[in-house]
Every structure is written in C-alpha cells, then in structure tokens.
Design a protein around this nucleic acid. Structure first.
Lengths: 200, 200, 200, 200
DNA sequence: TATGAATGAGGGTTCATTCAT
DNA sequence: GATGAATGAACCCTCATTCAT
C-alpha cells in the first residue's frame, strides 16, 4: 500500500535522465558528455543516477533505441492504403525546419558509434530492419497499386530510402546557402522519380 | 649549412602522425582516441608529437581537411565533357566494397563533431562548397548537352547529390542483408532517374 | 533528512587541504608544489581534492587570503587606547623566533606572484588596505595623545610601516650572524625613533 | 689564430641568455619560466643554450648572483668620506620611479627560492654579507664623524638597513595610493631618524 | 530515495634535458 | 657553434563508478 506509484515514478525518472542525457549528447557528443554533466542537467546526484541506470553505456544504448524508435515512428502511423509517397516521406514532411534537423544530429553520433560499438550497431540495425519492413510493405502495396516501379526490389529499395531520408540532416551541416523547403522539395522529387514506374 | 632534407622529414612525420591518428579515430572516435594511443600507433613519445602539432584539436582539424580533400578528390579529375553520370558517381564507383565504405565512417565522426565544433563545421562547409561547385558545373554541362533535366537548379541539386553520395557509408552500418554491388546499382539508378530529363 | 554535520565537514576538509597546501607551498613554492604533492600531504586523491576546490589557482588564492588575514590579525585585537608602539609592533613581538619568521616566507611567494597574477595582487592589496586602515587609526590616536610625531601623514606612514614589518622575514634569509632578539630590538628601535615627536 | 675572439663571444652569449632569462623570470617566475621560453626569448635552440649553461639551475644561480651584484653595486662606488646618508640611501635615490622598483620584483623570487634552495640561499647571503660589510664601514665612519648614533652596533644595524632598503619594492605591490617620491622621502626620513645621534 | 564523499587511472599537455647531425 | 628531433616523467585536471549515510 505504501508503494504503488513507485514503478511509474521510477520510469518517469528514467525518462528525465534520458532526456537530459540526450541534450548533453547533442551538445558534447556521446563520449564528450560526462556522467557529471548529465547529473547536472538532470538535477541529480551521481549516486542517484546510478540507481536508475547501471552505467553510462546503458544510458547511451537506451537513448539510442528511444531516439530511433521515435525518429522512425512516423511510418508506423500510416495504413498501407495511403498514397505511397505520403508514407515514405512522412518523416521529412513532418519536420518544420532546420532546427528539427539539427536535433537529428545525434544520428551521426550513433552512426559513428555503431562502427565501433557492437551493441549500438545492433540497436541501429534492429531499428532499421523495423522500418525497412514497413517501407518494403508500403512499396509492395504501391507496386500492387501501380504507383511504384515494379522492377524495384522492395528490400533493397527500402535500404536506400532509409539512407536517403537519414541523410537529410547532413544538409545544414554541409551547406549554408540552401534553404529547408527547397531541400525538402528536391529530396521529395528525387524519391518520387526514383520510385515512379518508368516509361518504356 | 647543415640543413638537408629537414623540411621534408618534418612534413613526412606530420603525415605519419595524421595517418596514425586517422586509424585511431576510426577505431575509437575523435574524442575516444587519446593522444597516448596516437603516440603508440605512431611509435612516438607525447613530447615529440607535440613538436609537430600544437594540440589534439589541430590534429583533428588537419585530418578532417585532408580526409575530405581526398574523399572528394575524384570529382576534380574529370573534364566537363565526360558523360554526366560518370563524373557524379565517380566516387562511388571507385570503391570496391564495404571495406572502403567502412573506412569512410570517419565522415560520421566529422558530421557529429561539426554540430558542436565551429572549426570542423567550417572545414566541412568549405570542402563541400568546393565539390558542389564542381558538381554544379558538371550538371550545367549536362543540361547543355541535354543529359540533365533543365528544370533542376544546379546549386540545390548539387547539395542533394553530395548528401546522397555521403550517405552511402550508412548502408553497411544499418543493414546486414544488402550487398555492396546491389546498393551501388540502386543509388546510381536513383540519381540517374533524378537527373534525367523528364518526359512531358 | 539525512543531513547532519555535512556542511561543517565540508568546510573542515577545505581547511585541511589549505593547511596541507600551505606546507607544500613553503617546501616547494607556489608553482613548485604540485596537486599530487598536496594530495599526498592531505591524504587524499586528486579527484577528491577537486571536489573541494575547482583549481590549483583557487587553492593558492584562498590560502593567500587566509594567510594574510591571520598574519595581520594581531592588529585587530587592540584598542585605540593602548600605547602606540604596543599595537604597531604586536605582530613582531608575538613571534618567538626565526622559526616563526621562516614560516612567513610564504609572504615572498605571494609578493613574487602578485607581480604577475592580478588576482593575488588584488588579494594582497585588499589585505594591506585593511591593516593600513588600522595602523593609520592607531597613528592618529597616537598623534592625539602626543606619542607620535604630528608631522607624519598617517596614510603614508602606515604604508611604510607595513613594508618594514613584512620585511622582517628577510633577515634570517639574508644573514647568518644576526640573532632574532637583537633584530627585533633594532626594528622596534627604528620604528620608535621614526614615530616619536621630534625635538625642535 | 683562428680562435681568438671566441671566449669573448662565448661570454657575450652567456650574457644574452641571462638577460633573456631575467625577462622570463620576471614575467613567469623562476619555476614558471621554462627553458623553451628562455630559448624563444633569446632566439636560440635548446641544444645551443645547453652549450652555454649546464642546466636551468645554473642559469638561475648565475642570474641571481649577477642581479644582486648589480642591485647593491651602488654602495661600492662611494668613499668613506661622503656623508653617511648619501651612501646608505644611494640605491633608493638612484631609482626614478615605480617602474625601476617593479623591476626589482625578482628579488622576491630569490627570497622565496632561498628558503628552499641552499645554493640560492648561499648566493643571497654572500651578496648580503658583501654590502653589509660596506654599510658597516660607512656606519663606523659616520660614528667617528659624529653623524651616527654611537650606540648602534654596526653589524646589526647594517642587517636592518639592508632589509629596509630591499623592502621598498613591496610598496607598489601592496598599495595603490602611495606615490613614489613620498615613499622615498618617508623611508629616507625613517632611516635618518634611526641613525641620528639621540638627544640625552 | 537520494546525497555527495571518495577513488585512481587516464585525459591533454609541458617539462628539462640529450643527442645526432 | 648551432639545430631541432626525441624522450618519458610529471603537470593539472576529469573520468566513470562505488559506497556510507
């Protein structure tokens, strides 16, 4: 009777820590952000933080998983019967500007880390496999409806699509003279032309 | 005059250090690779290393610049008269497999770093501006020859092209069931369809 | 509420560190004493020491302030109605020998440091201003009582007096054949003759 | 025949190094000034510098000796027949302002160092013994002429005089509101009153 | 729950010095 | 006489983590 809300409290504290960690990782990188920074950001003592996570590694992994789930969550909210493009580009179109993209920079931290950390690599692949399945299904539905080039292999095409969509956050880092809406329009156009059934 | 090959020796030592640093950065990340690791990799004492570079920061910056110059060097070796696709995809086609791409992983370190390190950001932008200029010129030549959709804005299209080409190293990190040649083929196809003059 | 004596413990640890640092600084100089020496002297790990002070600089500054406050603390314990000489020379007469003076050697570290470190300079001046105020008041009271030459400007005279009193620790460093009591007697005599109302 | 000016060249190089070292020591302290700083200041490689001095220690010692000899050199240029005060205060009166005194700050470095470095201690004592001898002779002459209180012991008084004169550089470090000429006047007055034959 | 004291290895960097040229 | 390459110990400081309270 004394403890009942505890499990929920526990979970909400974990979320607070993960959010604080995410901000620190954005500011300083996965390796550059220290536990003590995260503690400060979360308003928490190190002893207490270790009550919720067994190690920094665990925080990174959980954060990576949560981030990827949320990043690719847009695809899951569509039905197979919506127009193909609407679904495939939903992530990109849900963003409102470079600020949102800048926030995605953490993806590059994860890609860099995945190259040398097997756990992060596995998390990245598992998440990618998830949306690729959704994308492939969407593509198949599109092919059935005649909206998508039937010559494309759905599995391979889905991989390329994920890579292209995840590459969008590169643009503000690499260029200073390209505006967001124009970029979005071009990427959309590129994917549209890629998928569209080809004339003989 | 005692001097002989001294300046060349100095430069070649710098290159050795940069190569050792590059290997360490690939293995452990920009932040995770320590000076002492780089020293060990380069067979050199820390005091000596600091004879050649004033700080770790300087090593990272020099390495970043060198890497980007070399990465995008393929484009510079073409003339405007070659077929458009040959030039645009020369980087991708010059690679022989995932191993080469894996080696490009350092790009993600740089992208992550660029978000919080103004110097690296500037290096990245300066290099990107360089190849974008080349790509844009190639696109214009292609448009003049009727190989490229005249409706595309060369500056914007070049930005998207750079992002897509640099996104290629994501694939081996994100997937396990896609083979290199198939990926290359698909990306090539996508860009081809993107650029090709569109039927009415 | 788990808290008990925690804040006092914190302060007492700080004092321990400052005392250890003072000993190390005496033995090796402000620059020559290393953090690891201070840690060893204080029986403490470096990580822990930095829990109490943010930098070596901060330790030096705090030590300097504490030392000067204590060094000049003798003057504050007198009332204006005591004989002038008793007050002015109380610091000197409170010492029992060269050992006490040797302990004051740290003053020379501070004087040397003050020439190139603005913070230490400010600490030194602030402390000096403090006792000069007390000395000047004592001199004025002495002048009112007819014990001190009314022709002396109290502010200027106070500066000279501080310098002379603080110069006392020079003697054991510079000479080997002068004994403590004799020196004290001579300095006392000099100041006495300096202040005494002059015959026409 | 080939080498004849070499010894003089050698000596002049040593002087250049010592001058450069002196400037560095003033800026950064005896411990804070590094060999490489001194090399830069002297426009010289470390290997070359070690051709002239066997160690940093040796540079410090030589610099200390040279500095003290020059500092106290004023006394030696007087004859015993000049008025006592002229001789005793010649050092102080030869200075033209706080800048000259600021330059004397290195004395505090030496005093601090003397407390923990036997060699520097010995140099300091030897130099002090030297001028004390001169001062004592001057005092004796003054006593013979009736200008100096015959009750003062020349050896002890000379020690106090050296300390007082060497304390002068403290004033600009400790105060900000005392001007140079006034200070000089007061110190002169104090010493005058100290030495003057006392009325019955 | 929650704190912050405590560790000691390791971070990037500088040091005085030596030595081949 | 003169250079600067080379060393490795030591510099100040931060790290992830543990533990008593």
């Amino acid at each position: 009777m004394v403890r009942k809300v505890v499990p929920e409290q526990h979970e909400s504290k974990r979320q607070e820590i993960l959010a604080a960690a995410h901000r620190c990782f954005l500011r300083n990188g996965l390796q550059g952000a220290s536990i003590s920074m995260i503690c400060k950001e979360a308003g928490m003592s190190p002893g207490h933080l270790y009550h919720y996570f067994p190690s920094k590694e665990a925080i990174v992994e959980q954060m990576a998983d949560d981030y990827l789930v949320q990043l690719h969550g847009h695809f899951g909210r569509h039905t197979k019967d919506e127009p193909t493009a609407t679904v495939l580009l939903s992530e990109l179109w849900s963003m409102s500007g470079w600020d949102d993209l800048a926030h995605c920079r953490i993806l590059f931290e994860l890609l860099a880390e995945a190259g040398r950390n097997e756990k992060i690599h596995a998390i990245l692949q598992a998440n990618t496999d998830g949306i690729r399945q959704l994308l492939a299904d969407t593509l198949k539905a599109g092919q059935a409806r005649g909206e998508v080039d039937p010559g494309l292999d759905p599995r391979h095409a889905s991989a390329v699509l994920v890579a292209v969509l995840d590459a969008a956050p590169m643009l503000p880092l690499m260029t200073s003279d390209v505006d967001f809406d124009e970029s979005r329009k071009l990427i959309t156009m590129m994917i549209d032309r890629f998928l569209r059934p080809q004339p003989l």
